[in-house]
């Protein structure tokens, strides 16, 4: 495994170890998230992928160091969880959801003209203008994922974290999300970190892979991991030279 290139990194993990309830979840993880790129963290269930994201967000106590080169504190994160477990009868509209994060005035006061325009603009980024006054509990799974993405983008993130956010949707919504994510990363320049089980999504978006199973087993570009055979070890029978086989397998 090549040593991580920390010069172009936006996040660095140095010997990060997480132990929860005496269970070793992450074991001396050393890796980098390249600036402006799309990193996919892949691995089997229980490999510690979500824990790695939560450690980055400061939610999980850890040993070792998580660094953000070139800045004092943590970068501005945008986070899209796999799903939102909430009471579907909650009278919270999609427009209000966008207001939750960034608005300075409470929802019980009417949004100003500028704020209403901002909400419209944000919803239109993910093609959800028609959902502004609909309760979030009435949205479909795909619409809700796009709304979560819109809320994350509203923060103008420096690092966008996606926890199985793309692969949790149906194929039509998945393709739309992939298209939107590619566009936004190009336009906004954030580093993207995604957890995914879905090889098609990983290969469509990622230019850097971290293969994790409690510890980093391999990391690098998809092409480099394909050449070294590490990609095939994680996704048996897959080669980048056979795109058809890839998508069928996914």
């Amino acid at each position: 495994m090549n040593p991580p290139d920390i010069v172009n990194a936006t996040v660095t993990f140095s010997n990060v170890t997480v132990v929860l309830d005496r269970n070793l979840i992450l074991d001396r993880v050393t890796a980098v998230i390249p600036r402006g790129g799309c990193t996919a963290v892949v691995g089997p269930n229980g490999a510690g992928k979500t824990t790695l994201l939560l450690a980055m967000l400061g939610y999980v106590p850890h040993r070792g160091e998580i660094g953000f080169p070139g800045r004092r504190g943590a970068p501005r994160f945008g986070y899209v969880p796999q799903r939102l477990d909430f009471d579907r009868e909650l009278p919270l509209t999609a427009g209000e959801f966008i207001r939750l994060g960034e608005s300075r005035s409470p929802l019980w006061l009417r949004a100003g003209k500028g704020e209403r325009a901002r909400i419209e603009r944000t919803l239109s980024l993910v093609n959800l203008e028609y959902c502004r006054d609909r309760r979030i509990g009435d949205l479909s799974g795909g619409e809700l994922q796009r709304l979560l993405l819109a809320a994350a983008l509203e923060r103008k993130p420096e690092v966008l974290l996606l926890d199985e956010a793309v692969s949790a949707t149906d194929p039509v919504n998945r393709n739309e999300l992939i298209r939107l994510l590619e566009r936004f990363r190009r336009e906004m320049g954030f580093a993207q970190v995604m957890i995914s089980h879905d090889l098609a999504t990983v290969l469509a978006l990622a230019d850097h892979l971290i293969c994790l199973d409690r510890k980093v087993l391999a990391a690098g570009t998809p092409e480099a991991l394909d050449a070294s055979g590490d990609l095939a070890a994680f996704f048996p029978g897959i080669s980048l030279a056979e795109p058809k086989a890839r998508s069928e397998s996914a």
Binding site: L57, F77, G78, L84, L92, L100, S105, R155
Partner: peptide, 23 residues
């Protein structure tokens, strides 16, 4: 408190990790 916290408490009720990640 309601002026400054209403939105934040609602966010927190939806998902504390998401709320924390978003400031």
């Amino acid at each position: 408190f309601q002026y400054f916290a209403y939105n934040r408490m609602l966010y927190l009720g939806l998902d504390p990790v998401l709320a924390g990640a978003h400031g």
